[in-house]
Simulated scan of single mutants.
Amino acid sequence: MNNKKKIPNATMKRLPLYYRFFKNSEKSGVDRVSSREISEALDIDSATIRRDFSYFGELGRKGYGYNVKSLLKFFMEHIQGNQKRNVAIIGAGNLGSALLNYKFSNINDRMNIVAAFDNNSSIVGTTINDTTVHHSDEIEKMAEDHGIDVAILTLPAEVSQEMAERLEAAGIKGILNFTPMRLDVSDGIYVHNIDLSVELQALFFYMKHI
């Protein structure tokens, strides 16, 4: 990967879309694709696709397009990495349960949901889609025992900061934050915020200006 160029956040957000496209293309037996075909499938203009790929060197050839197997291997090795990420869902209520039932393997076969945590006695001890819900008091021990380095946070906002501090102390390196709180953590941990209310407002704005 070319580390000399700073990759824009907008490009980083599109990378999972590209990965899924090439994964589906491989499953369909497609050998190579053009930027136009990627553009039509993902509704991203061809110039943007070529610019996104340019951050990682020469991934395709003019007049030939992109080799599906080569690009899929590239995404797996240089973007996803060879390491399998062990993930925990913190909060197994409505949203947490929905995420546990989601087939994450369809979008990322290097992500392994190893546990879920909650402090609701009616949920603790249950199994959701083959994942056991443990009490929140066990987070630190299980993070160490199972090598958990990513957490998906679906807790009430008022307890999210305290939990983020516990997760950081337990060695978690990345948090996907579904709460509306902006978490205060050190530079050694990456937080990606997903605020559904903001996303909906953005959707309404774009619909209004179509």
Rank of each mutant, 00 (worst) to 15 (best):
Y102D: 10
G125T: 07
Q83W: 00
L42D: 07
R61M: 13
R61D: 14
S46K: 15
N108L: 00
F117W: 06
L71K: 00
Y64Q: 11
F117N: 05
E37D: 12
K84T: 08
K73A: 14
N101I: 00
R50N: 12
E77L: 13
V68K: 03
N112F: 04
I90E: 11
S122F: 08
F53S: 06
G96S: 03
L95M: 15
R50H: 04
G81W: 05
G81S: 09
E37N: 05
K69D: 10
Y55P: 02
L71Q: 07
K103T: 02
F56E: 07
Q83C: 05
Y55F: 13
G96Q: 03
G63L: 12
Y64L: 08
E58W: 01
N129A: 09
F75P: 00
F56W: 05
R110W: 00
A41Y: 04
S54D: 13
V68G: 05
E58V: 02
S35H: 14
K103H: 06
N120L: 01
N86S: 12
R50I: 05
D45W: 01
L59R: 14
A92S: 15
R85E: 13
R51K: 11
S97A: 14
N67Q: 08
S35P: 02
E77W: 08
I79S: 07
S105F: 02
T126Y: 06
S70P: 00
I89A: 10
K62S: 14
G93K: 08
K62C: 06
F56K: 07
D109P: 00
T126W: 06
F75R: 03
M111Q: 06
V68C: 07
E37P: 02
K103Y: 02
L95G: 08
T127S: 13
S121V: 08
T48S: 14
F75H: 03
Y64P: 00
N120I: 00
N86T: 03
G60N: 10
E77D: 15
K84M: 05
I44F: 04
S35N: 14
S70D: 14
R85L: 11
D43C: 10
F74S: 07
D52A: 10
L99A: 11
E58K: 12
L99M: 15
L95A: 12
I44L: 12
D118T: 01
I90D: 10
S70Q: 13
M76Y: 08
G81E: 09
G91A: 10
N112W: 02
V68I: 05
A115W: 07
M76V: 04
N86A: 11
Q80A: 11
K62W: 08
S70I: 05
N106S: 10
G125A: 09
R50V: 04
K69H: 03
K103G: 01
N82P: 00
I89T: 04
Y66H: 10
V87I: 14
H78Y: 15
N129G: 02
K62D: 13
D118M: 04
L72V: 01
R61V: 12
N82T: 12
K62N: 13
S35I: 09
A88R: 05
V114Q: 08
F53Y: 10
A98H: 03
I107A: 05
N108M: 00
G65Q: 10
A88C: 14
N86Q: 12
